[in-house]
Design a protein around this nucleic acid. Structure first.
Lengths: 215, 215
DNA sequence: TGACTATTCGACATTTTTGGTCGATTTAAA
DNA sequence: TTTAAATCGACCAAAAATGTCGAATAGTCA
């Protein structure tokens, strides 16, 4: 048994279903190892939680970096960032963040500020450049807009769980994404946006088909 | 403070979010009462859980009875039963049943057998009558079919939580319902079924609109 | 008003759960 | 065969939850 496997398993369990649901015994049992072995790699439960948080942040950072590919233009980058956020919101459950906030407040604070700063530094730059370029509305206050969209994403994320009966999470987050994109786009660039969105939803359908075929 | 209010609140919390999530302190706090008061109406946590289960079963039974209205024909009844099950699956979270099974196995067994027997006695009768009437396929083995559809519903219910990213629960359960209805319908009665389904989805849209308006 | 009852509160005791430890045992290599 | 590393799961201690109790408050009737 190795550290990576344990960490990834714990990460998957925690992020998809919440932290408190899984005791150390439970995690060991799922990995078919003893607690002793588990504690050989992680000094405490808090240590495990911390490292899961680091992994989550690292994954997010990497996704965002990929979405900011150098060959992309500013519109594509913003769309890419939002797509990363949609994927992130779909992958992680609200229970993970609630449990973190309640039982590991320090780690919660650290993770959220890390995630926010990743988003902010990337999105702010691209917004500012895009405004100069004329693809986003000139009346935008980039710094404020970044703060607002972060709050909106957070709200949508919290609220999506309540909408799950009538809408898929994908639908909820995608609608939120559209709202933002159409909210910042310059009127002249709307055709360009719609073109990109078409490519985006095609790519999504493709990924979806592949996922089903791989089963 | 009265027993009914407490029971209904606990029922709502338990069925929508799971049992273990809510300690007695938490429940008391949500009702803005003390634990002492809570224990005046319920002798123990188990007592509370039991009564919640009874309420769930009673609600289900009542819904099923309403769906079997005397003016309805056999096709309408089956559709009504399935609609009740869709609503039931949407209303109750998987966490409720998982927690119940793990921490209150006796109550879990009792509730599930109760629910199953309610479904069975109603559905079996209507299937048999419908076969005689020619609205359902004559090759059906009613008793076996009832058992199978119960297993299918259970599976769909468990699996829906994993599909929630890409589909709404409504969509998942409705597709399951269609599968069953087209699976039992006699070929001659298909137009009749489609007619009923049209009415069903209209009623659903109506209910949905009302819900939104009431906000 | 004042005595008496019913109800509520929240601190506290008790039980259960869970995080974390340790000697015994197994596995694998030298 | 010996030795070292890894693993197990019973065990302990700390944390959390259930359930209890005397004090305080609100309400009622004489």
């Amino acid at each position: 048994m190795n550290e990576i496997t344990i960490l990834q398993t714990a990460c998957r369990l925690f992020t998809t279903q919440g932290i408190q649901l899984f005791t150390m015994d439970e995690i060991a049992s799922r990995l078919a190892i003893s607690k002793k072995t588990l504690y050989r790699f992680f000094t405490s439960r808090q240590d495990l939680v911390q490292q899961v948080c680091q992994l989550v942040a690292a994954d997010y950072s990497q996704q965002m970096e990929a979405a900011a590919g150098p060959e992309a233009d500013n519109l594509q980058r913003v769309l890419g960032f939002m797509a990363v956020n949609v994927a992130f919101c779909k992958k992680n459950s609200l229970a993970f963040f609630s449990d973190l906030q309640k039982h590991y407040p320090a780690e919660y604070l650290h993770l959220t500020t890390t995630l926010n700063s990743i988003t902010e530094q990337r999105l702010l730059k691209v917004l500012e450049d895009g405004i100069v370029e004329g693809v986003f509305r000139g009346s935008l206050h980039p710094k404020l807009i970044v703060t607002l969209i972060q709050q909106h994403i957070k709200r949508d994320f919290e609220f999506a769980a309540e909408l799950v009966n009538d809408y898929s999470k994908d639908e909820v987050f995608r609608q939120g994404m559209y709202l933002f994109l159409y909210g910042i786009i310059a009127p002249e660039a709307i055709p360009q946006l719609e073109n990109e969105l078409k490519r985006y939803s095609q790519a999504n359908r493709m990924a979806h088909t592949e996922k089903n075929e791989s089963l």
